[in-house]
Write a protein that binds this DNA or RNA. Structure first.
Lengths: 211, 211
DNA sequence: GGGCTATTCATACATACGTATGAAACAGAG
DNA sequence: CTCTGTTTCATACGTATGTATGAATAGCCC
C-alpha cells in the first residue's frame, strides 16, 4: 500500500495522481481499489469522484502523464540533427533511462494491453506520434545510406521492442537470468548490449555497400 | 463471452481450461469472473472449485498449458544440429507462428507480469529452461565465430524481445501503424524483418573478422 | 441391481467494490 | 463579519465477486 503523502505541499489532485500511478502500476487497474488509492493519497474516499469524475478517468490521466513526457523526450531527441544510427542508439538509451527513473511506466502501459482493453486515447496519440517520428527516422537513415533497406514502419518497431521488453520482464530477468537492472553496472551493460543489437539490426552491412 | 462448449466430447475439466484460457486472455485475471468462465464451459458455478480448488489454481493450470508447449517446441528446435544463426532465425519464426496460432499466449503471459504479481511456478520453470537453452545457443554461436562477442544472457534476451513485443502490441500496431498481423502477407513481412533484425543484431560483422 | 464414488447442481454467504449523497469545513471577496 | 463557491468528509447503496455447503445425480464395479 502506498505511503500517505503530505497533504500540505501537494494538492489533493496531485496526491491522487501520484498514489494512483503507484497503485495502478503495482496491482493493475482492477486490483487497485479506490479505497487504497485515496488512502495512499491521504484523501477522502470521495476525492476521486470529485476531482476526476470516475476511477477510469483518473486512470486515463495517470497513463497520459506517464506516456506523454516519454514521447516528448524521444520525439525531441529524434528531431536533433545527428546521424540516424546515433539517434537510434540515443532512443534506446533514453528509454532505458526513463524506465529506470519511472519503473512503473512499462507496466502501466501494458496492463490494459495485456487485458485486451483499449488504451486511453491520450496514450494512443502519444504512441502514434512517437511511432511516426521513429518511422521518419528510419527513412532518413535509409536516405543517408546508413540503414539497410526494409519497411520503415516495421524497422521502427524493432527500435523500441527491446527496451520495453527488457524493462517489462525486469522481475523475471532478475529471478531467472540473474540480471538485475536495478544495479547500475548491470544496467549499463544491458543498455550497451541493446544499443549494439539495435545498431546491428538496422545498419547497412559493410559488404552490402552504400545502397 | 466465450461460447459454451459441447459437454459431450470434452470433459468438464478440459472445457473449463479452454473457456478460462479464452476469458483470462480476453479480460485479465480479475475481470474474468468465475461465472463467465463456467458459463462459457457449459459447467456449473461450482465446477472450478471442484476441479481446481480455486480460480487462481485454474489460472496457473491455464498459464502452464500455454507456456509449456511453446517452451517445448523452442528448446527442441534449439537442440537441432544447425548453425546457430539459423537456429536463432528459426526461434524467431517459430515464436511468431506459435503466437499466430495461439494469440492469447503473450497476453496471458504478460498479465501477471504487468500486474507485478509473480508468475505461476510452472510458467517460471518453462521460461527458465527456455532462457537457458537460448543462452547456450548464443554461446555456441560465439564458439562458431558467427556471433559477435557479448554476454550470452543479455544477447539471448534480445532474441525473444521482438516476437513477444510485436505480438503483444498487436492491436496498437494495427490501429496506430496500420500493420495488421492477422493478414498473412503482412505477417510474413514482419517475420522476415524480425529475422533480419535479430541476425544483424547478433552476427559478427564481416569487417570484424572471425574472432 | 445395490452400493459407492465422482461429479454436478442450486443456492447461500460474506466481502469488497465504485459511486452517490448530503452535510460539514474551508477559503476568499465584499 | 457574512456570504458564496469550492473542497472535504462520513456514510449509505446496489452490485458483483469467489467460495462454501449440502442435496441431487450419474457412472460403475461387484
Amino acid at each position: 500500500m502506498p505511503e500517505p503523502f503530505d497533504g500540505a505541499d501537494a494538492s489533493t489532485r496531485e496526491a491522487l495522481l501520484l498514489s494512483a500511478r503507484e497503485a495502478f502500476a503495482e496491482r493493475g487497474f482492477d486490483a487497485a481499489s479506490v479505497r487504497t488509492i485515496t488512502a495512499g493519497a491521504g484523501a477522502n474516499l470521495g476525492a476521486i469522484t470529485y476531482h476526476f469524475g470516475s476511477k477510469r478517468a483518473l486512470y486515463d490521466a495517470v497513463v497520459d502523464g506517464a506516456v506523454g513526457p516519454l514521447a516528448d523526450r524521444l520525439t525531441a531527441l529524434i528531431a536533433e540533427p545527428r546521424p540516424a544510427l546515433e539517434r537510434v542508439a540515443a532512443v534506446v538509451r533514453t528509454m532505458f533511462e526513463y524506465f529506470d527513473a519511472h519503473p512503473d511506466t512499462p507496466r502501466l502501459l501494458l496492463q490494459e494491453l495485456a487485458n485486451g482493453r483499449m488504451l486511453p486515447d491520450a496514450a494512443l496519440r502519444h504512441m502514434g506520434r512517437l511511432f511516426a517520428a521513429l518511422t521518419t527516422l528510419v527513412s532518413e537513415g535509409q536516405a543517408e545510406g546508413t540503414m539497410r533497406p526494409g519497411e520503415p514502419r516495421l524497422m521502427a518497431l524493432t527500435i523500441i521492442a527491446h527496451p520495453v521488453h527488457a524493462n517489462l520482464f525486469r522481475s523475471v530477468l532478475r529471478d531467472i537470468a540473474g540480471v538485475d537492472l536495478a544495479e547500475a553496472p548491470v544496467r549499463a551493460r544491458v543498455i550497451a548490449n541493446a544499443e549494439a543489437f539495435v545498431r546491428g539490426g538496422l545498419a547497412v552491412w559493410p559488404e552490402e555497400g552504400g545502397a
